[in-house]
Amino acid sequence: MHGAEWGVIFVGLLFTGVRLAVPLLLAALGETLAEKSGVINVGIEGMILGGAMAGFTAAYATHNPWLGAGAALLAGVALAAIFSGLAVVLGADQVVVGTAINILALGLTGVFFRALPQLSGASAAAFPPLSLPFLHSAHASHSLTAQLASVFLEQNALGWLAWVLVPLSWLYLHRTRGGLRLRAVGEYPEAADGAGVRVERVRIGATLAGGALAGLAGAYLSIGYTNGFVENMSAGRGFVALAVVILGRWNPFGVAGAAFLFGLAFALQYQFQATSTRFPYQFFLALPYVLTLLALLVRSRFQSSPPAALGEAYRRG
């Protein structure tokens, strides 16, 4: 292969990587909010799956991707409401409740998908890529810069939302009173409580916001990047997003970087499956999960600590 071909592969990889990073980023930003408030929500996997199904069904029925995204968001919030009712209000173990939510979403989407046969193999009204006006003229030139511009700038509405939320969530967490309260609740709930912060209320809010973003991540899967729903289509992305939060050190910018890297890992799957016969394809299918493990293993070199009260239910004494 000569230089030009590698160039095509590289641009293709970046193009797919940036897009596959979006669902990870949406889910991981939501999880960052929840974890900063002291709640570890393993159930985002199920919330992504629920969002994918609800979003696809609504977009299919209404021919409107925005209504699809709204339905996906609501599905995520509904599952997050069950989660926070049990894990935050009643203080049941967060990992156990999250696992139950995942099983619930897997079962419910499976049952309803079977009950609605018109959905299988169908396509719905999906989000079109938003092309910026100056890109049209750039496209004509076919230069590398033009191609790179389309890699980063030709995203659909949900893609734009994900990248815009990165600085916004950082500003919220570190430059607003609400963000300060949220972090205080995650670090030292007793003190926050003493200072008059409603610990439960803050945690429920953060968990619901996380569920909403996970739902949108699901919509991105079924009516964003691809168009269609298959059973269990979240395929572990929620769990990868949990790792992305750790690797991004609970900081939205770090999370964005980690999500981008894992987007590339998922993209490698498609790229190599298409071009390489030297390796068995299962190797590439396993790659994102192997990379997640390796990344978590080497992380401790530059470790930062998680929120101090992460995973602990808070009860007023």
Partner: peptide, 9 residues
């Protein structure tokens, strides 16, 4: 004709 996924539910 009900999906066995119901047992997950």
């Amino acid at each position: 004709g009900i999906s066995a996924n119901l047992s997950y539910v």
